[in-house]
Design a protein around this nucleic acid. Structure first.
Length: 876
RNA sequence: GGGAGAUUAGCUCAGUUGGUUCAGAGCGCCUGCCUUACAAGCAGGAUGUCGGGGGUUCGAAUCCCUCAUUUCCCA
């Protein structure tokens, strides 16, 4: 039976994923074990897998798989988010391609289309996650618009309303004229754009030719001007305070007010105030009781307040009005200017600050426990530097605008029975609403048809903030078995960008509805970037298709490639060469297994080198295991992976296997083979969370397994005691071997050629690893001598002298030069140590231990110099 | 404009309380090897004023000040 030289991932991946599914290893039910729960950050139902998901979900899978091996009842809940704006935009677009306009459809018709679409294309991303190896409990797949989930959302809305935490109010909100909906502050992205700063002069009322010049980037809003504002201390304008000006074109008379909000240095130091179209202006408007003149329709078209500009788009009006101002002599000058403009995260259109009647959650009180419990460490952030950002936001939290003028989402359960702003009730059903409305209105004759439900839906995050609770139906069935068992969840893995959208609000909801934290740890991943440091995005086309990567490098290779250099919170500059590294690693393990499985066993004595190798690898493995566990506990996942990588490749393959390897076509003894397989299995266990497919594949190739003996449910290796001294002894042997190899290389001595090695002991030397040195150095013998050997290559390890007699070709000059260099370095070293030791302040100030170390350094160096000097003399 | 970080080898990053795992790892690079587990490999090797400047200290990548560059968050 020929085992292929390279590992072929595809077959193994398909076979083992279906095997795991068939055995139900991913499925969790509450039992007496300790739970380990992770809820997936639900991707948009319309989404396709990108590199960010790969990173995020690989990390979750590592955590979940490790917990499973630690005997915990691991439960990873997958699902998708209905993502109201994003999905609605996609459905609208798809309908448009079919020639259907949203405005031609009724709400119900539109929703039917949307659900059809979701059924057909939604959740592709979950199928893709399976290719990655994600061990999610697919039987628990949730969707934020599942009936029971929707019920929790409505329950929470009603509850918060009844507690007075939800209110309806006119506020300045971010309006998306494209999607024609309000957006939360977090959905607005500010970008720097090149724009123009228009200097426009307004005539002072009651004067012939006295003017005041303002600077604005948005001249079209002149149509809605309500005041001019200057700084109270600004000497240039002091005489104008309290006077009035005439708005150009509009010819409205407005006051000049003074407020410290104005920056004297900016522009002309005069600000025009348009309360309807700017957040700060709105605040000024409230303060000075100014008129609020809205000049736009919902879609950004100028309305009847815009005089002859009515019916034109806001950006066209900006150009046109500039021309008119210029023509009429109002435009003083135009400057280039860079300013920050808000764009809609979803539609990328310029946000219009706008006054609007919306629903809000009052956040201040709700946020308090969420702030406290992160700051006091009840909930840990990894890395914890994100606590600063979190605190800053939570201390300045603003009320949350939760209504969206969309159809796809949870419709707000408010029912209007009249046209007054307070003539509504909030209720779960139309029947309950009717009953409540009768009471509230005092009108017993109301019928269901008199009630009109609010047209708006809720912000998507108003449903996803309940995710850790509602996937277990904790709100609809409080205290059910599952919520009691799985909540609070353990680790949340997500991107820092959604710390406020999602993480903070989940914590808030957790404390409000469960009375405790939703998760104990939050692991923030970085942003996946391309080699040039650009964010991966569809529009740049710089994002590799993860599925193609998996096909090319294998799922394990990609997982390793993506984890190997992504410390928590740091961006991940991704390059497919990392996947290549991953692929190479899986291939390396594959070949190690070919070696081990190819050996014939014979009844024979165990070689000494093998005995020592086994002793050493136990120590080495245990030493590293402690480090790996520690790193994992600290969520330093890439570092843990790197430690495993080196343990497998360097320690196990390059050293251990070479030490025990019999000669070509030679048999191996039973004891060594058995122990080697045990070691191999332990390494596979460490690898399983990271590279689950090849781990399972080799687990089954290395040994006959009974039904159900799969590595996915095997135990994570236990820490055990080990002999630290062995590690030290091996390090010395290792140095000797490296020196031998160097001499071979320098003198062009082939590895096949056996050599003699003589040792002159000057110091205590443990000879335990001599057999290993003989084997690895390919020596005929290793002998101890009392006198120096003449005509030999020499080297020093731990002040012991090693000699390899010259063969035919020698290079005395080179040998001498090498020694002289070493001697010079050692002398310099000694000098620096001695100068330190002769410094009285150092001796007085440094701790005992440090001084002892320095003295030892000094002694070692002196000895080394003696030996080297002698040797050099001998060469002459 | 306000806040929080970052700056260590060509690249990506480790580096606990200042002093023996202090200048490290992986990749890349250079040299030599197709040595029957693996060329997707083996063996060996090189690489840094620890962003600049100043200070504290017997001693600074580590603490303080300052400047520069840069990322993110908020307005």
């Amino acid at each position: 039976m020929e085992i292929p030289k390279t590992y072929e991932p595809r077959l193994a991946e398909e076979r083992w994923y279906s095997h795991w599914m068939a055995k139900g290893y991913f499925h969790s039910e509450p039992d007496e074990r300790e739970p380990f729960t992770v809820v997936i950050p639900p991707p948009n139902v319309t989404g396709v897998l990108h590199m960010g998901h790969m990173l995020n979900n690989t990390i979750q899978d590592v955590l979940v798989r490790k917990a499973r091996m630690e005997g915990k009842n691991a439960c990873w809940v997958p699902g998708t988010d209905h993502a109201s704006i994003a999905t609605e935009a996609k459905v609208v677009q798809k309908l448009r391609q079919e020639g259907i306009k949203k405005s031609d459809l009724s709400r119900d018709e539109f929703l039917r289309h949307a659900f059809d679409w979701k059924e057909k294309y939604g959740g592709v991303i979950l199928q893709q996650l399976k290719k990655l190896g994600a061990s999610c409990d697919w039987e628990r797949t949730s969707f934020t618009m599942d009936p029971e989930y929707s019920e929790s959302v409505i329950t929470v809305f009603i509850d918060l309303f009844n507690k007075g935490k939800i209110y309806r109010g006119v506020r300045m909100i971010n309006w998306d004229p494209e999607a024609q909906t309000a957006l939360s502050d977090e959905e607005v992205i500010y970008k720097e754009v090149n724009s123009k700063l228009f200097h426009v002069r307004y005539k002072i009322a009651g004067t012939e030719d006295e003017w005041i010049t303002i600077a604005t980037t948005r001249p079209e809003t002149i149509l809605g001007d309500a005041a001019i504002c200057v700084h109270p201390d600004d000497e240039r304008y002091k005489h104008l305070q309290g006077k009035q000006v005439i708005v150009p074109i509009v010819n409205r008379v407005i006051p000049i007010i003074a407020d410290e909000y104005v920056e004297m240095e900016f522009g002309t130091g005069c600000l025009k105030v348009t309360p309807a179209h700017d957040v700060n202006d709105y605040e000024l408007g409230k303060k000075y009781d100014l008129e609020t003149i809205d000049i736009f329709h919902d879609n950004g078209i100028v309305n009847e307040n815009g005089l002859h500009y009515a019916g034109n788009d806001r950006f066209d009006v900006r150009k046109e009005i500039a021309k008119e101002l210029d023509a009429k002599g109002y435009l003083v000058k135009v400057e280039d200017h860079i300013n920050k403009v808000g764009f809609s995260e979803r539609t990328d259109c310029v946000i219009e600050p706008r006054l609007s009647l919306q629903w809000f959650v009052s956040m201040k009180e709700l946020a308090q426990p969420a702030l406290d419990n992160v700051m006091n460490g009840t909930i840990s952030f990894h890395p914890d530097k994100f606590k600063n950002t979190y605190r800053h936001w939570m201390e300045n939290v603003k009320d949350w605008c939760i209504s969206r003028q969309l159809w796809w989402g949870h419709r707000i359960p408010a029912f209007f029975y009249g046209s007054g702003s307070d003539e509504f009730v909030v209720a779960r059903t139309i029947d309950e609403a009717l009953a409540a409305a009768k009471v509230k209105s005092g009108n017993d004759a109301l019928t269901a048809s008199d009630l009109k439900q609010d047209e708006d839906v809720l912000d998507t995050w108003f449903s996803s903030w309940l995710w850790p609770i509602s996937v277990f139906n904790g709100l609809t069935q409080p205290n059910n078995e599952e919520i009691k068992y799985y909540y609070p969840t353990n680790d949340l893995v997500t991107a820092p960008e959604i710390m406020f959208f999602w993480v903070a609000r989940m914590i808030i909801a957790g404390y409000e509805y469960m009375g405790e934290l939703p998760f104990k740890n939050v692991y923030y991943t970085g942003i996946v970037r391309d080699k040039l440091g650009r964010k991966m995005s569809k529009s740049l086309g710089n994002s590799p298709d993860p599925i193609e990567l998996i096909e090319k490098y294998g799922a394990d290779g990609v997982r390793l490639g993506i984890l190997i250099s992504s410390p928590a919170g740091n961006d991940l500059p991704f390059d497919s060469s990392q996947c290549e590294q991953g692929r190479n690693f899986t291939n390396k393990i594959w070949n190690a297994s070919r070696l081990v499985m190819g050996w014939e066993v014979k009844q024979m004595e165990q070689p000494k080198a093998a005995v020592k190798a086994i002793e050493w690898f136990h120590a080495r493995f245990q030493h590293e295991l402690a480090i790996i566990n520690d790193l994992m506990n600290k969520f330093k996942i890439s570092e843990a992976l790197m430690a495993i990588y080196k343990l497998v490749w360097d320690d196990f393959c390059s050293w251990y296997l070479e030490m025990i390897k019999p000669g070509y076509e030679q048999p191996i003894d039973q004891a060594t083979l058995d122990q080697t397989i045990v070691y191999f299995e332990q390494l596979l266990c460490l690898l399983q969370p990271f590279t689950p497919f090849i781990a399972e594949e080799l687990w089954h190739l290395l040994r006959e397994r009974k039904e159900g003996e799969d590595i996915i449910i095997a135990s994570w290796p236990k820490e055990a005691t080990y002999n630290k001294e062995v590690l030290h002894q091996f390090a010395v042997a290792e140095e000797v071997i490296i020196n031998i190899r160097n001499i071979r290389k320098q003198n062009n001595i082939a590895n096949k050629v056996k050599m003699d090695l003589f040792v002159k002991k000057n110091n205590e030397l443990d000879q335990a690893f001599d057999a290993v040195v003989v084997k690895m150095g390919n020596l005929t013998q290793l002998d101890y001598v009392n006198e120096k050997i003449a005509n030999a290559n020499t080297f020093l390890v731990a002040a012991n002298e090693y000699f390899i007699p010259f063969g035919d070709s020698i290079d005395l000059v080179a040998e001498k030069a090498k020694m002289e260099e070493e001697l010079a370095y050692t002398k310099g070293f000694l000098k620096s140590v001695q100068s330190k030791l002769s410094n009285e302040k150092f001796v007085a100030g440094a701790p005992e231990q440090v001084i002892t170390n320095e003295r030892k350094k000094e002694a070692d160096a002196i000895q080394k110099i003696e030996i080297l000097t002698e040797k050099l003399a001998g060469l002459k």
